[in-house]
Design a protein around this nucleic acid. Sequence first.
DNA 1: AAAGGTTTTCCAACGGTGTTCGAAAGCTGT
DNA 2: ACAGCTTTCGAACACCGTTGGAAAACCTTT
Lengths: 208, 208
Amino acid sequence: MKLTKERIIDAGMATFAEVGYHALSMRQVAERLGAHAGSLYYHVRSKDELLALMADRVCRQAHDDGSAALAALPPGATWQDRIEAQATTLRQALLQHPGGALLLADSPRMLSTGGLSLMERLLHTLRDAGVPAEHAGTAADTLLSHLTGFVLQEQSEARTAPVTEEVYADLHARFPLLLTEMPRLDQDEKFRRSVHLLCRAVATLIEG
Amino acid sequence: MKLTKERIIDAGMATFAEVGYHALSMRQVAERLGAHAGSLYYHVRSKDELLALMADRVCRQAHDDGSAALAALPPGATWQDRIEAQATTLRQALLQHPGGALLLADSPRMLSTGGLSLMERLLHTLRDAGVPAEHAGTAADTLLSHLTGFVLQEQSEARTAPVTEEVYADLHARFPLLLTEMPRLDQDEKFRRSVHLLCRAVATLIEG
DNA sequence: AAAGGTTTTCCAACGGTGTTCGAAAGCTGT
DNA sequence: ACAGCTTTCGAACACCGTTGGAAAACCTTT
């Protein structure tokens, strides 16, 4: 079949889901399409451009998933619920690919319409919640920065070996607070708490 | 001079500061030491290990800089000032190298003693501020995740071309809220506001 | 000082990467 | 059937991380 920008992005996403961000190569993408690597460059300027297009697609999917999640919310849902729904859907979208957060983090958001629509919707819910105009931008920015930072850490620690008991004891001796005060929560719980904490911050903006 | 793990990390940091994260190669590091690329592998298992060691060094430097900044604080400094001091010194440490946030984000924190000491100190100031034990871990985690996420975005947008007036108008039409509500602040101001917002969240944890 | 053993460095090579470029192939309209 | 344009090929370039055996350097022992 004919080679197309869209089909190249599709193939890119497919191999991305299989081999992850670091191992993704133009040759693999081309092979999946039954083409040679050089042929991709007729439709795509460089690998970086392809990555940016893929990042945009991830954001688009996250946007659609978020819309569905928002629609499924019960009628009496608070603005905290709406924010949490958007945060978790974006996180899920990133977690579907190994290194997905890196894809988003490494390509500039400002020219990705997908990323911008995520931002726009978040701003909308913040405004509806009553956040004054001069603080909404900061709040949305903080939320999104935190989100990518969180999933980034989550995914980078996912591909490391679990710590042995021996080094754990050593760490405990050197950093007493670190391990006594940070219970071993699973990532889902950590994420929920983190989002709740940020919602608290937003709440202070609303009250004045 | 003799080749050493420490000297290799030094050379790695030097070339890192020059060419950035993406372009850093073992051959360049070796050349800076007057050695051949293969020789590095006697002291370092892989490039990933070298990157992890470098990430640890960045954290150590950020820790030391943070200690100095904390010591220079006036006697009547609040815990918000102490948090802001730590946040800004870490950001500065990351900004000194192009792609510095990627270095930190892409190597797992959990076995880097430098990263752990940053976390430990942050937990300490939170505890001193009166944050109850069951929330201090979440708060520290949220702060650090946000910080790496913020600098990541900052640095990824730094190596992109500035938007032209034409596409700016187009974006304005498609995402009305995005640009009317988000004044064009410089990154320093955005960062300060972001940290302040997070401090507000921490404050709610203290009051109960 | 000579010998032996260990630690460290070299050097060439392997398979892989992003990217380029002229030639070939395919398609379209006349 | 011919011309013209679009798309693909296929080889090449320079670079990458990594490996393994040969060579050098160093240190200890005799």
